[in-house]
Design a protein around this nucleic acid. Sequence first.
DNA 1: CCCTGCATGTAATCCGTTACATGATTGG
DNA 2: CCAATCATGTAACGGATTACATGCAGGG
Lengths: 189, 189
Amino acid sequence: MSLRHALLGLLSEGPASGYDLLKLFDNSLANVWPATQSQLYGELGRLADAGLITVQSEGARGRKEYAVTDAGRAELRHWMLEVKPTWIQRYDMLLRVFFFGQISTDDAIAYLREQQRTGAEAVDHLTEVGQMIADYDDDFTVYGRVALEWGLRFNRLHQEWAEWAIQEVKAHDRSSSADPCKPSDEHGA
Amino acid sequence: MSLRHALLGLLSEGPASGYDLLKLFDNSLANVWPATQSQLYGELGRLADAGLITVQSEGARGRKEYAVTDAGRAELRHWMLEVKPTWIQRYDMLLRVFFFGQISTDDAIAYLREQQRTGAEAVDHLTEVGQMIADYDDDFTVYGRVALEWGLRFNRLHQEWAEWAIQEVKAHDRSSSADPCKPSDEHGA
DNA sequence: CCCTGCATGTAATCCGTTACATGATTGG
DNA sequence: CCAATCATGTAACGGATTACATGCAGGG
């Protein structure tokens, strides 16, 4: 149910069409709340039906410019101040880690190295984004940078964790092949 | 589509019923891939239809014990080695941050403080989980700890970021109320 | 005149959540 | 015998993804 509020939030900065919002999304909110074009137009329709936004003006090519209503502003405030953020996460990346016993140590390490790389690339990408928006100082951009910092830290964490995990997996490999309870030829399988 | 693989992975450790798997989930995979009872039973049925698992034996109270087949093991391997982890995340927690301009500085800080607390609590919880599983040294637990470490780092990051963000918001508040372009009474609204 | 970009929509499908529904067994 | 636990399923609903479908307007 958060796409509603993402749209309300964007429209609170000023009126815009679905198309405008779609582009705005890409450079900002998509990082924390991705949405497709279909979804966006659908939600705009529902928001208008609910009276949280209105069509302010219609332009060329069927363009509809939406503006947030008082009811919409109230709903946004309510969501921001009183609704607890959901804290559900799904990481199939970590799911695989649980099953490392099913693949070879080398494959596990290759997997983790790939994760390390993914983290590093994301850091690079976000750093670029940061440079692109460095000159703006409107509220949306200022607070966007606070969110961006989260992303930077997250990806650095990802990268560093992967490096740590590689060492951990290597250590476990050594200890289990040295383990007198298990045959030493297991490490080569 | 990862619930399939979560179940295949668990069943690779040994045969189990839906009920067993449900409980196993709670203490391990639910942290990285939550699933409900409905979903789990549904997926088990579909996995059996697809021939990736089989009903090994039926017990009392309609209990069905499932075991993974060779096809299932192959599918798990394929998923682990060749399917790229999806990297889609949705954080309504961060979405709100983008719209901090719509609420007062004090409310924004209260929000961040709450996030800081949430992170700290999660760290405590995961630390407890770590202590509970400290004595096991099977593969699943060993690698589970590697995933747990990710969770610990993640929540520490969350906590530290929130603390940093509070300072950032305070700094922005001071600079905008000192800003000659904007009226100084804005900070009190 | 045609291509690119602007602009909006619908339909099918999948996954996840919530709630409902049922019944067998075991231990106190 | 009754409550808790074991154990499995179905149905309704909502949100997200993908693909499809359409058409106008402006610049070269």
